[in-house]
Protein backbone atom coordinates (compact mmCIF):
# COMPACT_ATOMS: atom_id res chain seq x y z
CA UNK A 1 0.00 0.00 0.00
CA UNK A 2 2.75 2.42 0.93
CA UNK A 3 4.52 1.77 -2.33
CA UNK A 4 1.35 2.35 -4.17
CA UNK A 5 0.88 5.65 -2.45
CA UNK A 6 4.43 6.60 -3.14
CA UNK A 7 3.97 5.87 -6.79
CA UNK A 8 0.70 7.78 -6.80
CA UNK A 9 2.28 10.80 -5.16
CA UNK A 10 5.10 10.79 -7.62
CA UNK A 11 2.70 10.54 -10.54
CA UNK A 12 0.67 13.46 -9.21
CA UNK A 13 3.83 15.43 -8.59
CA UNK A 14 4.98 14.77 -12.12
CA UNK A 15 1.70 15.91 -13.53
CA UNK A 16 2.06 19.02 -11.46
CA UNK A 17 5.42 19.56 -13.08
CA UNK A 18 3.78 19.17 -16.48
CA UNK A 19 1.15 21.70 -15.51
CA UNK A 20 3.79 24.04 -14.22
CA UNK A 21 5.40 23.81 -17.60
CA UNK A 22 2.17 24.97 -19.16
CA UNK A 23 1.93 27.65 -16.55
CA UNK A 24 5.32 28.98 -17.40
CA UNK A 25 4.89 28.63 -21.14
CA UNK A 26 1.59 30.35 -21.48
CA UNK A 27 1.16 31.53 -24.16
CA UNK A 28 -1.59 33.75 -22.85
CA UNK A 29 -2.76 34.44 -19.32
CA UNK A 30 -5.86 32.33 -19.65
CA UNK A 31 -3.73 29.28 -20.27
CA UNK A 32 -1.80 30.01 -17.17
CA UNK A 33 -4.92 30.38 -15.13
CA UNK A 34 -6.29 27.12 -16.43
CA UNK A 35 -3.04 25.50 -15.57
CA UNK A 36 -3.12 27.02 -12.11
CA UNK A 37 -6.63 25.80 -11.58
CA UNK A 38 -5.62 22.32 -12.57
CA UNK A 39 -2.59 22.52 -10.36
CA UNK A 40 -4.96 23.35 -7.53
CA UNK A 41 -6.92 20.22 -8.29
CA UNK A 42 -3.75 18.18 -8.46
CA UNK A 43 -2.68 19.61 -5.15
CA UNK A 44 -5.90 18.42 -3.61
CA UNK A 45 -5.05 14.93 -4.76
CA UNK A 46 -1.54 15.29 -3.47
CA UNK A 47 -2.73 16.40 -0.06
CA UNK A 48 -5.20 13.53 0.13
CA UNK A 49 -2.60 10.98 -0.81
CA UNK A 50 -0.09 12.50 1.51
CA UNK A 51 -2.43 12.32 4.47
CA UNK A 52 -2.93 8.66 3.71
CA UNK A 53 0.77 8.19 3.54
CA UNK A 54 1.55 9.65 6.91
CA UNK A 55 -1.71 8.44 8.44
CA UNK A 56 -3.05 11.64 9.76
CA UNK A 57 -6.36 13.28 9.15
CA UNK A 58 -5.28 16.78 10.05
CA UNK A 59 -4.52 17.76 6.52
CA UNK A 60 -7.94 16.88 5.25
CA UNK A 61 -9.18 20.33 6.15
CA UNK A 62 -6.87 21.60 3.51
CA UNK A 63 -8.63 19.69 0.78
CA UNK A 64 -11.86 21.61 0.95
CA UNK A 65 -9.98 24.82 1.49
CA UNK A 66 -7.94 24.25 -1.63
CA UNK A 67 -11.07 23.56 -3.57
CA UNK A 68 -12.65 26.75 -2.31
CA UNK A 69 -9.65 28.84 -3.03
CA UNK A 70 -9.00 27.38 -6.39
CA UNK A 71 -12.56 28.18 -7.36
CA UNK A 72 -12.39 31.70 -6.08
CA UNK A 73 -9.07 32.16 -7.80
CA UNK A 74 -10.42 30.98 -11.08
CA UNK A 75 -13.45 33.21 -10.87
CA UNK A 76 -11.32 36.17 -9.93
CA UNK A 77 -8.86 35.57 -12.72
CA UNK A 78 -11.55 35.14 -15.27
CA UNK A 79 -13.23 38.30 -14.26
CA UNK A 80 -9.90 40.05 -14.40
CA UNK A 81 -9.23 38.71 -17.87
CA UNK A 82 -12.63 39.73 -19.03
CA UNK A 83 -12.85 43.17 -17.50
CA UNK A 84 -9.41 44.04 -16.22
CA UNK A 85 -10.86 44.48 -12.76
CA UNK A 86 -12.27 41.91 -10.46
CA UNK A 87 -14.64 44.07 -8.49
CA UNK A 88 -17.22 46.23 -10.09
CA UNK A 89 -18.77 48.83 -7.94
CA UNK A 90 -22.21 48.85 -9.33
CA UNK A 91 -23.29 46.59 -12.11
CA UNK A 92 -26.70 48.07 -12.49
CA UNK A 93 -25.32 51.27 -13.86
Amino acid sequence: MTYFLWAAIIIVALSIVALVFRLVKGPNPSDRVVALDTIGVALICLVGLFSMLIDTSFFLEIILLLAVLSFIGTIAFSKFIEKGDIITRDDSR
Binding site: I72, I75, I86, I87, T88, R89, D90, D91, S92
Partner: peptide, 11 residues
Protein backbone atom coordinates in the same frame (compact mmCIF):
# COMPACT_ATOMS: atom_id res chain seq x y z
CA UNK B 1 -15.06 38.23 -1.90
CA UNK B 2 -16.60 35.56 -4.02
CA UNK B 3 -19.94 37.27 -3.66
CA UNK B 4 -18.44 40.61 -4.54
CA UNK B 5 -16.73 39.20 -7.58
CA UNK B 6 -19.84 37.48 -8.75
CA UNK B 7 -22.13 40.41 -8.09
CA UNK B 8 -20.92 43.92 -7.45
CA UNK B 9 -20.02 45.97 -4.43
CA UNK B 10 -23.27 47.80 -4.10
CA UNK B 11 -25.38 44.67 -4.18
Amino acid sequence: VLLIVAFDLKT
